[in-house]
Amino acid sequence: MALEQQLTNNETSQLHNQNQGNEILVEAKNIKKYFPIKGGILKHTVGHVKAVDDVSLSIKQGETLGLVGESGSGKSTLGRVILRLLEPTEGEIIFDKEDISHLSNRKLRNYRKNMQIVFQDPFASLNSKMSVGELIEEPLLVQSSATKPERKQKCIDLLEKVGLRASDRTKYPHEFSGGQRQRISIARALALNPKFIICDEPVSALDVSIQAQVLNLMADLQDEFNLTYLFIAHDLSVVKHISDRVAVMYLGRIAEIAPKKPLYDNPLHPYTKALLSSVPSTDVKHRREKIHLTGDLPSPADPPSGCAFRTRCIHAHEKCALERPELTDMGDGHYVACHLYDQGR
């Protein structure tokens, strides 16, 4: 036990070094994003889809925060709100100690070079009429004063960094496979030396062998450029592999957030438990006991009162319908939003 304690301490101290004293780079405070539902002849607002409903989280310098959840949980919306690609309905976004939630577009531009995004579908996210060179140099053209030869050199460097060839610069996206296109997207995201990259399901459209190549590349780039990632994915094994900490979202809210090891070894929220037990395992000798969730995700336009998960939860009791559970500190950075843990651990 003592040894184990020591080991974890060592691990944490290593992490601390990596994370440069754990300075917080990105912070989201009480973010809400409601999309209005229009109805009637006069297109009045008849309700709201609560895509993100009061979410707070922070990401440290050099860290990878994994964000998992099923479709409709609001994880992609949250990512976009943090980059201010979508305007938050409420809440604050703090990037590098600066509140960017109310900056004008012009002022925001200065921050944009420090935050980039890589999307899921490399077939849709790259303009098919632009050559790879144009695609990668475009951010430099917009954001920097680099000359043409400088841009070209930077582009060649980036292509080589992501495992493509300098000669690929003159080719077009359709000449590449899915994995290679994702490498191009990553090169484009890296062009301005950003501090922070949101990866929105970057490998879910790829075959496993290619997925592994891209995941390895992303880890290497993180080490080399001290990047901070918000890694959004639905695949729990992928998120476990790449993340330092993991947040689990359900219906626009965070159900549980913790460093990766406690989250996967000792999940607390009934939803996290069910989610983890549902992942098919290649371990044919040791079968996990499955926890079956009944029904589907409720509509975010009309979420259940109190705890959003209560309609599918086997532990649901009276209080769950009345009161929304807040994230409770369970020690060691493990937070859970569930009435089962109201009294602490």
Binding site: S177, G179, Q180, V208, S209, I210, Q211, A212, Q213, L215, N216, A219, D235, L236, S237, V238, K240, H241, I242, Y264, L276, V279, S281, T282, D283
Partner: peptide, 21 residues
């Protein structure tokens, strides 16, 4: 294929990707 698969059970530093496509 098995090496490129991230797993919930075991932890690896790097995934054993298959080169090429």
């Amino acid at each position: 294929l098995l090496d490129s698969l991230p797993s919930l059970e075991k932890e690896v530093k790097r995934l054993g990707a298959i080169r090429g496509t």
